[in-house]
């Protein structure tokens, strides 16, 4: 691995080849909002919040490899504006009623929006009619709060190895499903490990029986498991 130098918001910084821009940027203390990115699972590049300007062109930092001589800008007015617009789009897409959500106060969508200064939604609320799935004995899936980040899919496939979760349909009609679009509680592949619940950034996946603002999630187990596995730190 060799060292590369690039310019971040006017300052010369260094990184390593093979690192993503997001990694380099965060290592240097610049905070970029992300939602679909989660350390420990593969990148998706779907939420587009981590967009930065590289040599004047926009690109998502989480899926762009850092390269020698890149000129990166992370917080131009335009980028900030676009980030707020994307968040507004997410809030308008489904029925995010924070006041009655189990994750109120601990939700990543909520905190990213607050950090970006998104305080009102100018778009029409699409208000789709979406179901909830409470058939699982330990967890609940509420489509109304899903932002289709696919963290649950990726953790289930890549870490647990069950591949219970999938996306069905496409575009605005996409939804997360378990197996053949059946009730989660009847899924033959689900191991009830709960990793999906822990990585879900919003109140779309939560524990049965939790009430408003009660649910908190932890996903620090991910780097730990994957570090151990990937680097073969555990020998037995």
């Amino acid at each position: 691995m060799s060292v590369i130098t690039l310019t971040l918001n006017g300052e010369m910084i260094s990184g390593l080849t093979g690192q993503t821009l997001l990694e380099v940027i965060r290592e240097h203390g610049v905070e970029l909002p992300t939602l679909c990115h989660l350390e420990g699972i593969s990148e998706r590049g779907g939420c587009r919040l981590c967009m930065v300007e590289v040599n004047g062109r926009m690109t998502a930092a989480c899926v762009t490899k850092a390269n020698e001589g890149m000129h990166v800008n992370t917080h131009t007015e335009k980028l900030q504006n676009y980030r707020r617009m994307i968040l507004e789009l997410l809030f308008a897409e489904r029925n995010h009623v924070c006041a009655v959500c189990v994750m109120n106060g601990h939700c990543e969508l909520q905190s990213v929006a607050a950090a970006q200064g998104m305080d009102s939604v100018r778009y029409d609320y699409l208000s789709p009619e979406l179901p909830m799935d409470a058939s699982h004995k330990r967890f609940v899936l509420d489509h109304n709060r899903c932002i289709l980040c696919t963290r649950c899919l990726r953790v289930c496939d890549e870490v647990e190895g069950a591949h219970t979760w999938e996306l069905k349909g496409r575009g605005i009609h996409s939804m997360v499903i378990t197996d053949l679009n059946g009730p989660w509680g009847e899924s033959p592949s689900c191991t009830s490990c709960g990793k999906c619940v822990q990585v879900c950034p919003t109140g779309a996946l939560y524990d049965q029986g939790s009430t408003v603002a009660e649910m908190e999630k932890k996903h620090d187990f991910l780097p730990w498991i994957l570090g151990g596995r990937g680097k073969k730190e555990w020998n037995w």
């Binding site: 591949h163 999938e166 069905k168 349909g169 496409r170 378990t178 197996d179 053949l180």
Partner: peptide
């Protein structure tokens, strides 16, 4: 293939 995979592809 995982069941979800097949449904996911078919519904796309």
């Amino acid at each position: 293939l995982p069941l979800g995979w097949v449904y996911g592809v078919a519904s796309f």
